[in-house]
Amino acid sequence: MATKIFKHIQTSVVPLPIENIDTDQIIPARFLKATTREGFGNNLFRDWRFDENDNPKTDFVLNNPNYSGRILVAGKNFGCGSSREHAAWAIDDYGFDAVVSSFFADIFKGNALNNGLLPVQVSDDFLKKLFDAVFADANAQVEINLVDQFIKIVATGEQESFEINPYKKACLINGYDDIDYILSKKHEIEEFETQR
């Protein structure tokens, strides 16, 4: 089945300079009771975004009208903790196409890639440059080019290349999904079972 295609974006970014953001913050467990993939964006960062009476917390970046864009930029070890794919669904459903951090937890990274949400791992230095750029100018544009594997701060031209597994890259660019690929190996799987 086709999934979301990602090749290239240029957009302003939303900064979230907090480290070790776990998937319980991205989508708290009490919102995991849905049985479809849709609608999780409403509860993205629920307890950082809204108070106990469901009023928006004005000091949280998603409630700050100055910041918007399709790239979320966050501190190191983003997506640690629970394996809930709902975290990737929530970020995607909210309207982000990519998350940039200096380090990703690996289950989150895999989940993001399986949903056409691109995790871009940059150096600590480049992450700091990104935060500096967006705090100096909330509209600072950032370009992510998956085909050529680089991320660029448009105004200054500063850029860094990023790594991605070539297979996952091909999946994102073409909208392939893992199950299509693995189903093509079905007779090898059956052969493996009989030879054990």
Binding site: S83, R84, E85, H86, A88, I107, G110, N111, N114, N115, N165, Y167, D177, D178, I179, Y181, I182, L183, K185, K186, I189
Partner: peptide, 20 residues
């Protein structure tokens, strides 16, 4: 190890997982 829901679907469909 733990996996996401897309991978749960993958394992249900094939009893295998694409994994580096």
């Amino acid at each position: 190890f733990g996996i996401g829901t897309s991978q749960v679907e993958q394992v249900l469909a094939t009893q295998c997982l694409l994994q580096a």
